[in-house]
């Protein structure tokens, strides 16, 4: 997926990217979780997942690369050779031993900037995924569990959100807002990318609620919300985890697009902001490739690692996909 939409292109870009793949993924993952029923939460089952998890090369590779980048984001700035925002050298220097990735048009050290900008990219990606996941789960559960008119209303809402291109909306909003924070960007991404999660969760809730164990829970006098959270949700746990990973990747890619167009947090530094500055100050025409190629390559690696880990996790949860 990913949809990478950038792109919420999951499909294409993540969002973009996310989406087309997310749909099949949902289809592939759902049966595995559902088949397990409540046993899926037995501890024996959990150990089985762990058994396959530590033996899955894709998962280990993806996770390993991702952990390196997360560590770089957290502790990297303390080890950066130069203060990221300060003008430490002559402008537009080629990469050298003093400046691993050269300097910008203004004389900032690109490598230090890169280390410093990882944090904001991860933060926005996490916020976007968290909000999209929460809204999508809430709406999907309510629509799938209650059904009826509420389902109709929520589906219509989902449809409308899908129809309104989020980037265009953000451009219009951005023209009126003088400044905003990374939190705003993350929330905006979450509020515009939840629909595909809601759809998949709704569909799965719909099938799960007709199962015997749900009837039993109902007969025992449990209330709706408790059944959804304690009986239905655990059966989708694997799907929810996979969806969160895809959302995380797609949110980071969407944020790159926003930042690139100058719609990101005011005075922020993120990978997208580096691309934006490089474009604005003719990095392209001046052939300063070290300014704009590394940030995008790093982002590609960050998201690709997530996608690879995601495929690996899918194999762990879904016995049908395991290579024996």
């Amino acid at each position: 997926m990913s949809g990478v939409d950038q792109a919420a292109p999951g499909g294409t870009t993540t969002a973009r990217g996310a989406s087309p793949t997310a749909v099949p993924l949902a289809g592939a993952t759902a049966p595995a979780g559902a088949r397990g029923g409540r046993e899926a939460y037995d501890s024996g089952r959990r150990w089985e997942f762990l058994y396959f998890a530590v033996r899955n090369k894709k998962l280990l590779l993806g996770l390993g690369v991702e952990i390196i980048f997360v560590l770089a984001a957290i502790i990297g700035p303390y080890f950066a050779p130069y203060p990221a925002k300060e003008f430490v050298a002559a402008a537009a220097l080629h990469p050298s031993s003093q400046h691993l990735l050269g300097t910008t048009y203004f004389g900032q050290d690109v490598f230090s900037l890169l280390l410093d900008s990882l944090r904001e990219s991860y933060l926005v990606g996490f916020l976007g995924a968290a909000f999209a996941g929460l809204i999508g789960l809430a709406i999907g559960f309510v629509a799938g569990w209650r059904g009826g008119w509420l389902d109709e209303v929520l589906q219509t809402l989902t449809y409308i959100v899908v129809m309104i291109p989020s980037l265009v909306l953000l451009i219009v909003i951005g023209a009126y807002l003088k400044s905003h924070s990374a939190f705003f960007e993350g929330v905006f991404i979450g509020v515009t990318t939840w629909p595909w999660v809601a759809r998949a969760v709704r569909a799965q809730t719909f099938t799960l609620r007709q199962r015997d164990f749900v009837d039993l829970a109902r007969l025992s006098g449990k209330r709706g919300p408790a059944i959804v959270l304690k009986d239905i949700a655990p059966n989708m746990a694997s799907y929810i985890l996979l969806a969160f990973i895809l959302l995380f990747g797609s949110s980071m890619l969407i944020a790159v697009n926003y930042d690139f167009l100058g719609l990101g947090p005011t005075n922020g530094i993120s990978l997208g902001d580096m691309l934006n500055l490089a474009e604005l100050w003719s990095g392209l025409q001046l052939h300063m490739w070290w300014w704009f190629i590394p940030p995008g390559a790093v982002m590609t690696l960050m998201v690709a690692a997530l996608l690879v880990a995601n495929v690996g996790l899918d194999e762990v949860f879904n016995p049908k996909l395991r290579e024996t």
Binding site: V4, P9, T12, R16, N257, G272, L275, F292, T300, V311
Partner: peptide
Amino acid sequence: YLFQAMPYAW
């Protein structure tokens, strides 16, 4: 997957 992981802008 590689193309999906790339930011459009980049």
